[in-house]
């Protein structure tokens, strides 16, 4: 097995830990199946896009949660599409899975960072510390990530969606790596780094109190 095949095998294994990877629901790009299904591809790419948007569009002085109405509008399609398919009301398509995943991921990133900053672990998690609000208050209506920022995120998601479907089915390996590396980074961060970090920080806090 060559090094490239080894890396692809590792990517596929990491993907299989968090996703079913059904071939009919996974995008084929650059001569390989992506590490996760179309919906998860959208969600992980969307999450990373969400973090990038946070860097530029968050309102540093605001304390309130991300705009709840727009967040809900962005997250509901994934929920409706998943449950509609689960209950046999319709069969989704990979494109529908991808765009609903993208919108969900983009809206989830600011919610996740905001939720972390509300917890007693505030300011203790590397990387997150750089983008979380200075003070977070749930009752404050002053949106930390406002409707305008979320609408720009929707527009970027649609552009990203168009780019991904344009390269779907292509045999050019660069497209595979361009998408699979951020996806794997997203999986490793959200499933392998963040939970143990949360646990370590929580345990340290617990033992320090005692």
């Amino acid at each position: 097995m060559t090094l490239v095949e080894e890396i692809i095998s590792l990517f596929n294994f990491i993907g299989s830990l968090v996703c079913h990877r059904r071939p009919d629901r996974t995008l084929w790009i650059g001569g390989h199946y992506l590490p996760v299904c179309a919906r998860d591809t959208g969600a992980f790419v969307g999450l990373l896009l969400g973090y990038v948007m946070l860097l530029f569009l968050r309102r540093k002085e605001a304390k309130g949660p991300p705009n709840l109405y727009v967040s809900l509008i962005m997250m509901l399609p994934l929920w409706v599409d998943s449950f509609g398919q689960l209950f046999g009301l319709w069969t989704s398509t990979n494109y529908l899975r991808l765009i609903t995943g993208l919108l969900f991921g983009v809206a989830l990133a600011p919610m996740l960072v905001y939720a972390l900053s509300l917890s007693p672990l505030k300011g203790r998690i590397p990387l997150i510390r750089k983008i979380e609000p200075e003070t977070a208050v749930l009752d404050n209506k002053n949106s930390w990530f406002d409707a305008k920022a979320l609408c720009i995120s929707i527009a970027l998601s649609v552009i990203l969606f168009t780019a991904i479907i344009a390269v779907t089915g292509s045999e050019f390996p660069l497209f595979y790596w361009t998408l699979s590396i951020p996806i794997i980074a997203g999986i490793v961060w959200h499933f392998f780094v963040l939970p143990p970090l949360l646990l370590i920080v929580a345990l340290r806090k617990l033992f320090r109190k005692k």
Binding site: S9, L10, F13, L17, F192, P195, P196, L199
Partner: peptide, 22 residues
């Protein structure tokens, strides 16, 4: 299925537990 199991298998057990507590 994969020889990578032992590299990540143990760590993966933590994840559902942490998200369950959250």
């Amino acid at each position: 299925q994969d020889e990578w199991f032992w590299l990540f298998g143990g760590l993966f057990c933590l994840i559902p537990l942490v998200w369950f507590i959250v």
